[in-house]
């Protein structure tokens, strides 16, 4: 059941990223909803599931991107794993912590991509920080904040997370 939910989620995220998100971009930057979702999975279901969902999503998304597969796997898988670790070591997750955490994870992911993807000489670090990495991190944090409000306030996932089966 849970595997089915994850597969459906991955398919939906790939379609969302390829078709709908280009229309909601601000200054040509759009959020990485996949990264936010992977962080939520890690936070709610632990490191292993966060990592595996992140790796699968990174692989699926790299099939439809010009980006490097290894970078995509490392960023998405690493985000899921780190979110799982954070969920284990923090007794309580507040909206502020979640939004700040997403800012940090998204910025780190952007920096890893910039470092590892061997981009054009035009795309230097300052340009990337100003036009892609930081705007996207802010966007991701906002999406994460909205997601937090939806998941916890509306669906009471904190209670579900403590039960044996999600």
């Amino acid at each position: 059941m849970r595997v089915g939910v994850y597969i459906l989620m991955i398919v939906s995220l790939v379609v969302l990223h390829a078709t709908l998100l280009p229309y909601v971009s601000v200054w040509d930057v759009k959020p990485d909803v996949g990264l936010v979702v992977v962080c939520f999975v890690g936070l709610l279901a632990g490191e292993l599931e966060g990592l595996l969902v992140g790796l699968l999503l990174g692989w699926a998304m790299s099939l439809f991107s010009a980006g490097d597969l290894a970078v995509s796997l490392a960023v998405k898988g690493g985000a899921g794993f780190l979110a799982g670790l954070a969920g284990r070591h923090m007794a309580q997750v507040t909206p502020v912590v979640l939004v700040c955490g997403l800012l940090v994870v998204s910025t780190a992911g952007g920096l890893v991509t910039l470092w590892a993807a061997n981009l054009s000489e035009q795309q230097d670090i300052w340009w990337a920080l100003q036009t892609i990495i930081l705007p996207q991190a802010c966007f991701d944090a906002v999406i994460g904040g909205i997601g937090y409000w939806l998941l916890w306030s509306r669906f009471h996932l904190d209670r579900l997370a403590m039960e044996p089966e999600l």
Binding site: L48, G50, R88, M90, A91, M162
Partner: peptide
């Protein structure tokens, strides 16, 4: 204030 995840076992963490 919400509770975070505590369900993953030590083995799962090491495996991940």
């Amino acid at each position: 204030m919400r509770m975070a995840n505590f369900r993953s076992s030590y083995g799962a963490r090491r495996l991940a």
